[in-house]
């Protein structure tokens, strides 16, 4: 078919290198999880590594690196609406914390009381500081 032997060899080489990098990143992300990082830091690092891996898979295995515009358009749509979907927990959290919502104030008796305390262990810690 269309592909030339040298091209193919180059392809194979890319795949092998990408595989090695992916395997290494997997080991690294596990190793990092044994370090005693703070939760926000751990989340940031783990997601950064995962995104790098996902990027490698998409770019080289799924050939996004030389894909047509239409595929990027489809992906852009998916990413945009994915972002909207991710705003559900964010917005929910903002609603709970920033405006001292009706229910949480009724339940706990204070505008920014017990309801959110569970969240303090998480990455959202910083959000709370400014509000109070």
């Amino acid at each position: 078919m269309s592909a030339h032997a040298e091209d193919i060899q180059a392809h194979v080489k890319t795949y092998v290198v990408v595989f090695a990098v992916l395997a290494a990143l997997t080991v690294i992300t596990v190793a990092i999880s044994y370090l005693d990082l703070s939760t926000p830091m751990a989340i940031a690092v783990a997601l950064l590594v995962a995104s790098t891996k996902a990027g490698l898979v998409a770019l080289f295995f799924m050939h996004l690196i030389d894909e047509k515009k239409i595929i990027y358009a489809v992906l852009a749509l998916a990413v945009a609406f994915f972002a909207v979907c991710m705003s559900i927990p964010t917005g929910w959290h903002v609603g709970q914390v920033k405006s001292g919502s009706l229910w949480s104030s009724m339940e706990t008796g204070s505008a920014a009381g017990g309801h959110e305390t569970g969240g303090h262990g998480d990455s959202s810690q910083d959000d709370h500081g400014g509000g109070h």
Binding site: T29, V30, S33, A46, A50
Partner: peptide, 8 residues
């Protein structure tokens, strides 16, 4: 899934 469920 792996880091989100197993590591964090």
């Amino acid at each position: 899934l792996f880091p989100v469920l197993y590591l964090l």
